[in-house]
Design a protein around this nucleic acid. Structure first.
Lengths: 220, 220
DNA sequence: GACGCTACCGACCGATCGTGCTATTTTCTG
DNA sequence: CAGAAAATAGCACGATCGGTCGGTAGCGTC
């Protein structure tokens, strides 16, 4: 597969833009073929089904994001700096990388939350992989003492994901000019309270207890 | 519009379930008519267009949620207790209220982030109203001294919305059994750091600076 | 020059989409 | 019971959906 930069790539390129703009459901064989400038059947000959088009498109978008999000951050020192860099590149990566619509995977998680299909499985796979990656970064920051030792990396990533989604909505749906710095502020706040062991006030004590219980019940 | 119950309500009822399960785009005149048990044209006579069906469905879902989310919380004392109660009722309200699929408005925000249409406007309207409501609750909690005076209610609600979205994804897409307590923990953490005036350490100063930079660099 | 292979096209399928127009049935009113 | 009015159904339209099929133009190979 050295440099198969042929038609298939042209299809995926166009499809990526289309998916970003119109969502996964908006990627239609007819419309996509039109965008690429070939007949529907000509395009279809490259794939076994529409599902396959969508799945490859999702994979492609994931690969497409990597050099924009992960790679530049990998030059930063391990631990918190690298985590910060990844997050900075992550938030709003899609429009910044030439995808006019938002992150296709984020949109897909809402579009396919009930529909059972291989496309859904693909989204879940990508999401899980990204989740694991973020958690490993977080865990490394804990190991290096950048984040406090008793931090629950799972919870950290969970809340981080919330900030990302809020940013997505704030930017793409509400079109708020505040979204960037709101997200940055939220993230910094998340980091800040993950730095050192905070004074365990009564409220926090209760939280910890709840968290522990939950953690235990799922430990298996 | 006194008590025009009957068919229109039956349509909206069925439509609400359908919308929750299949998303806004899944609400199709044919399918909906089938669900209601009448002909497509018979159903269509009650509305001027499909857009109107969707818009009324969104409004209906908003009204539908109110007694499950807001009203029981209004019995709680003003300020933080009431805010807590609303949030507790808010997270996961849809499945808890008989909507098998998730919150239709949340899903709609991702589905219609690029499509310009009156449906989009309706979602934006509902979202804005909810946002205002949450902010007023937060502000009241500040006024009563339950939350710290220098808290930015806007940012509070912004982050709260992130937790809600993360919960939606965690529950509906990932189907994680953890979602409920993860969300509760995140919310408690958000409240906890909004209680008292945190020491404005050097880190926080740096945060502000970065946020400013980020905003500027992307402003173009 | 006949062959097979790949890439692509145009036409077409049955289904469903939103949406009109015209009955027909049901219900309300006098 | 008549007749108006409202509710519902029947039907057809153009468009689009995912997908199939038969065909053909270009190409390297014997």
């Amino acid at each position: 597969m050295g440099h198969a930069a042929t038609t298939r790539e042209r299809i995926l390129d166009r499809g990526l833009a289309l998916m970003s703009k119109s969502g996964l459901g908006g990627v239609t064989l007819g419309v996509l073929a039109d965008q690429v400038g070939m007949s529907k059947s000509g395009l279809f000959a490259h794939f076994r089904s529409k599902d396959e088009v969508q799945i490859e498109l999702l994979e492609y978008s994931s690969q497409y994001g990597r050099p924009h999000i992960i790679e530049p951050a990998m030059k930063k020192p391990e631990g918190l700096p690298r985590l910060r860099a990844v997050v900075r590149n992550w938030f709003g990566w899609a429009p910044r990388s030439g995808l006019p619509g938002g992150c296709p995977i984020a949109a897909g998680m809402f579009e396919y939350d009930d529909i059972e299909s291989p496309v859904r499985d693909k989204i879940a796979e990508l999401e899980a992989a990204w989740h694991v990656f973020l958690r490993s970064l977080t865990q490394r920051a804990v190991e290096l003492g950048h984040l406090r030792a008793d931090l629950d990396p799972e919870q950290f990533v969970w809340e981080l994901n919330g900030i990302y989604l809020a940013h997505h909505v704030s930017q793409r749906f509400l079109r708020s000019p505040e979204s960037d710095w709101r997200a940055a502020a939220a993230f910094d706040s998340l980091v800040e309270r993950s730095l050192h062991v905070g004074k365990p006030g009564k409220t926090q004590g209760k939280i910890k207890a709840e968290a522990k219980i939950g953690t235990k019940s799922r430990a298996g």
